[in-house]
Lab assay of single mutants.
Amino acid sequence: LQAFIKTLTGKTFTVEMEPSDTIENLKAKIQDKEGIPPDQQRLIFAGKQLEDGRTLSDYNIQKESTLHLVL
């Protein structure tokens, strides 16, 4: 599935991932794409901060969901 990552500066980019991917995997993909170390990334979806060990499906993240990236 493709999801949108929106930063506080208003920049939006897309990442490809599977519902079974962990938040940790997602942070690694963001690092590959944007060069931001995972330990500096905080991802917010539906008002909740996402925990590394959980999966996208745990948070009911669907295709074309928008996640907010806070540094």
Rank of each mutant, 00 (worst) to 15 (best):
18 E>Q: 13
69 L>K: 00
19 P>E: 10
57 S>C: 04
20 S>Y: 12
29 K>M: 08
10 G>E: 03
49 Q>I: 15
24 E>D: 07
15 V>P: 00
32 D>Y: 10
58 D>N: 04
59 Y>D: 01
59 Y>C: 03
25 N>S: 12
17 M>L: 13
57 S>K: 11
28 A>D: 06
41 Q>P: 01
36 I>L: 05
58 D>P: 00
66 T>Y: 08
65 S>W: 06
16 E>C: 11
6 K>R: 12
1 L>F: 15
55 T>R: 12
7 T>K: 04
61 I>N: 04
11 K>F: 11
69 L>H: 00
41 Q>C: 05
24 E>T: 08
71 L>A: 07
38 P>R: 13
48 K>H: 10
41 Q>H: 03
6 K>L: 10
60 N>L: 10
44 I>E: 08
22 T>A: 03
38 P>S: 14
30 I>V: 05
61 I>Q: 04
51 E>K: 07
37 P>K: 06
12 T>H: 07
12 T>D: 05
44 I>H: 10
68 H>P: 02
2 Q>F: 13
10 G>C: 05
40 Q>A: 09
53 G>I: 06
70 V>H: 10
19 P>V: 10
47 G>I: 02
31 Q>V: 04
63 K>C: 06
25 N>G: 08
62 Q>S: 13
4 F>Q: 10
25 N>K: 15
36 I>E: 01
34 E>A: 13
51 E>M: 09
4 F>T: 13
12 T>R: 07
16 E>V: 11
30 I>P: 01
32 D>N: 10
19 P>M: 12
39 D>Q: 10
5 I>E: 02
50 L>Y: 01
21 D>P: 01
32 D>W: 09
39 D>V: 09
67 L>Y: 03
65 S>E: 08
61 I>E: 04
48 K>A: 10
68 H>K: 05
42 R>Q: 11
31 Q>I: 02
30 I>Y: 01
31 Q>A: 14
23 I>L: 05
15 V>F: 09
3 A>Y: 15
7 T>P: 05
37 P>C: 06
33 K>M: 14
38 P>M: 15
31 Q>G: 08
59 Y>R: 01
51 E>F: 05
46 A>Y: 09
14 T>A: 10
13 F>G: 01
69 L>P: 00
27 K>N: 00
56 L>V: 13
27 K>R: 05
18 E>I: 11
48 K>Q: 14
40 Q>C: 09
28 A>W: 12
5 I>N: 02
29 K>D: 01
34 E>M: 15
41 Q>E: 00
49 Q>N: 11
62 Q>F: 11
52 D>E: 08
33 K>S: 09
60 N>G: 14
7 T>L: 14
29 K>V: 07
25 N>Y: 12
55 T>K: 12
7 T>G: 05
28 A>I: 13
69 L>E: 01
45 F>K: 03
22 T>Q: 03
11 K>V: 07
22 T>E: 02
10 G>S: 03
48 K>T: 12
14 T>V: 13
45 F>V: 04
64 E>D: 15
47 G>F: 04
43 L>N: 00
10 G>T: 03
1 L>R: 05
3 A>W: 10
32 D>V: 13
54 R>D: 07
44 I>T: 10
28 A>C: 07
67 L>E: 01
57 S>I: 08
37 P>V: 05
32 D>S: 11
13 F>R: 00
30 I>C: 01
49 Q>P: 11
45 F>C: 03
7 T>S: 06
60 N>E: 06
30 I>A: 00
30 I>T: 00
13 F>H: 02
48 K>E: 12
28 A>P: 00
40 Q>K: 12
44 I>V: 09
4 F>S: 07
19 P>A: 11
4 F>C: 09
9 T>L: 09
69 L>G: 00
24 E>K: 13
20 S>T: 12
20 S>I: 05
53 G>H: 14
5 I>G: 01
17 M>T: 07
8 L>R: 12
64 E>Y: 14
2 Q>D: 05
18 E>Y: 14
63 K>F: 11
38 P>F: 14
17 M>G: 03
34 E>H: 11
2 Q>P: 06
17 M>D: 00
52 D>P: 07
62 Q>V: 13
21 D>A: 08
1 L>C: 06
35 G>E: 03
13 F>E: 00
67 L>V: 12
40 Q>D: 07
23 I>W: 02
39 D>N: 12
35 G>Y: 03
9 T>R: 11
7 T>R: 08
47 G>Q: 04
5 I>V: 08
24 E>C: 07
23 I>E: 01
7 T>M: 15
31 Q>K: 09
53 G>W: 14
56 L>Y: 03
26 L>Y: 00
70 V>T: 10
50 L>K: 00
37 P>G: 04
47 G>E: 04
58 D>M: 05
66 T>P: 07
5 I>S: 01
6 K>A: 07
42 R>Y: 11
9 T>F: 12
14 T>C: 08
56 L>G: 02
70 V>Q: 09
31 Q>E: 09
48 K>L: 12
49 Q>R: 09
5 I>W: 02
42 R>T: 14
44 I>M: 11
4 F>E: 06
3 A>I: 15
23 I>V: 13
34 E>C: 13
44 I>N: 05
52 D>S: 07
13 F>D: 00
34 E>L: 15
70 V>A: 07
48 K>I: 15
52 D>A: 07
36 I>A: 03
49 Q>A: 11
23 I>M: 03
22 T>M: 05
15 V>R: 00
17 M>W: 12
43 L>G: 00
37 P>H: 11
24 E>W: 14
47 G>A: 03
68 H>A: 06
66 T>E: 09
4 F>N: 09
54 R>G: 06
4 F>I: 14
45 F>W: 09
12 T>G: 06
48 K>M: 13
10 G>Q: 03
15 V>L: 12
6 K>M: 12
57 S>L: 11
55 T>S: 10
13 F>C: 02
15 V>N: 00
49 Q>S: 10
52 D>I: 05
53 G>K: 11
60 N>H: 09
42 R>E: 07
62 Q>I: 12
47 G>T: 03
4 F>L: 11
31 Q>M: 13
3 A>G: 04
54 R>Y: 12
62 Q>T: 15
43 L>A: 00
7 T>F: 11
27 K>L: 02
4 F>R: 13
47 G>V: 02
16 E>N: 11
31 Q>R: 13
63 K>V: 09
12 T>V: 13
29 K>E: 03
57 S>H: 09
17 M>Q: 02
66 T>W: 08
26 L>D: 00
58 D>R: 02
22 T>D: 02
32 D>P: 01
57 S>N: 09
57 S>W: 07
59 Y>N: 02
16 E>Q: 11
24 E>P: 02
34 E>P: 00
66 T>F: 09
33 K>V: 13
47 G>N: 05
24 E>I: 10
64 E>M: 10
26 L>C: 01
49 Q>T: 14
17 M>I: 14
48 K>Y: 09
22 T>S: 08
71 L>E: 06
31 Q>S: 12
66 T>G: 05
26 L>V: 06
53 G>Y: 10
40 Q>S: 09
23 I>Q: 01
58 D>T: 04
5 I>F: 02
27 K>M: 03
67 L>M: 09
63 K>A: 15
23 I>A: 02
47 G>H: 05
44 I>G: 02
8 L>G: 11
65 S>G: 07
65 S>L: 09
12 T>F: 09
30 I>E: 00
60 N>C: 05
31 Q>W: 15
41 Q>L: 05
62 Q>W: 09
44 I>F: 15
10 G>M: 03
33 K>Q: 13
67 L>A: 02
56 L>S: 01
9 T>W: 15
44 I>K: 05
43 L>Y: 04
4 F>G: 03
17 M>H: 03
